[in-house]
Amino acid sequence: MRIKTVRTTVPTEVTRDGETFTVNKHVDRRVITVFDVHRAVRRAVTAATVLVVGIALAWSVTSIGALLGLAAPTWVAYLAAGAFDLSWAVLMAAEWSMQYDDRAKIPRVAGWLALAVSMTAIATEGQLHAGLWIGIIGAVISLLAKGLWTVMMMITAHPLSDESYQIVQQKRSRAGEELALTVVDRELIRIRQETAALWESGSLTAVAWDAEGITRKALAETLADAIDESPEGIDEAPDPESDGSGIRADPIRQIDPDQSGGSEHFVPRSGSIKELVQSVMADGITDPAAVVAEVQADRPDANPETIKRMVRLHRVNGSG
């Protein structure tokens, strides 16, 4: 037990000229500290275990690398030895991180199996180059490292009652659910963003029409033929742009205002929303509301805000 002085800050009210302020004042306090032997031992055991594991890995890589070097280039042999020996060390770390989980049994069993294979390889190398006993002693180094790691886990782990264990599992399950939902939500947001981008570019609409075997050009020609064959309210005056068959080169058809009660025209257009907006504005229609109505007549699914944004971009670019 020892006594040491600790300086801390304490909020204090101070009054100046009738006005109160809160300031932080430095205060020295004497604190009695007690040396925690158990904590010091746990830290020492952990440090020693990590050191022994490092030594065991170094010896194992050296031995297995020398063994594999009989059949492969030196640098390849030692790389393979490192991957070969790191397996049981990684499994030990996984076992430690999952010590309160039922699945910890998997890395525990796999770690012991990987250690057995590693020890066999070390003993074989020792027998070939220095004698069987040297190989056995070298293999025991890895066994000691694994054993110390197991002891360290027993020291650092906190035993749980059956009730506490069930509570921990339920909380872990909720945490896993939140993590899974986060992943799914991110994927859903990405898919929706991609879908919205495709709708804005007109790609989805074009795909849908092609899938049905109906193109916009075919629809425009069909509607034009239907208007030509209609006996009501069609202007039959010859058109200098006609090809002689009574059908204009473009799909625009005028309807007699006297028959329809107003000025109406049907303009089948194709392309993306941007192209539709440019086509409408090229006809002299510049009012955003009117452009929205014209585009939606051809694309009922078009978003009005997207159309207005395309109108603004068209104006900024100096095209209209």
Rank of each mutant, 00 (worst) to 15 (best):
E232F: 09
R30H: 09
W59L: 11
V90P: 00
A145D: 03
S260G: 07
G126H: 10
A93E: 08
L51E: 12
F266W: 05
G213Y: 04
V50M: 04
E229K: 09
E236A: 02
D85S: 06
R248H: 08
V53P: 00
A77K: 09
S164Q: 15
W209I: 01
P251S: 01
V61T: 11
N317H: 04
S263N: 08
G69Q: 12
T195E: 15
D239P: 00
S279C: 04
A94T: 06
G18Q: 06
L223A: 10
L313W: 10
E212L: 15
S260C: 09
T62R: 13
Q296P: 01
Q170L: 14
V117A: 14
R30F: 12
L219A: 06
V52F: 03
L223Y: 06
R269P: 00
I141N: 01
E187Q: 12
W96V: 03
S164E: 15
I227R: 06
I247E: 13
V14F: 04
A44P: 00
Q127C: 04
M92V: 07
L179D: 05
I167A: 04
S63M: 15
K274P: 02
G284A: 13
T124K: 02
G318N: 09
V6M: 07
H158D: 10
D225Y: 01
V311T: 02
F266A: 06
L188W: 04
I106K: 00
I106P: 00
V10T: 07
Q193I: 05
D162A: 11
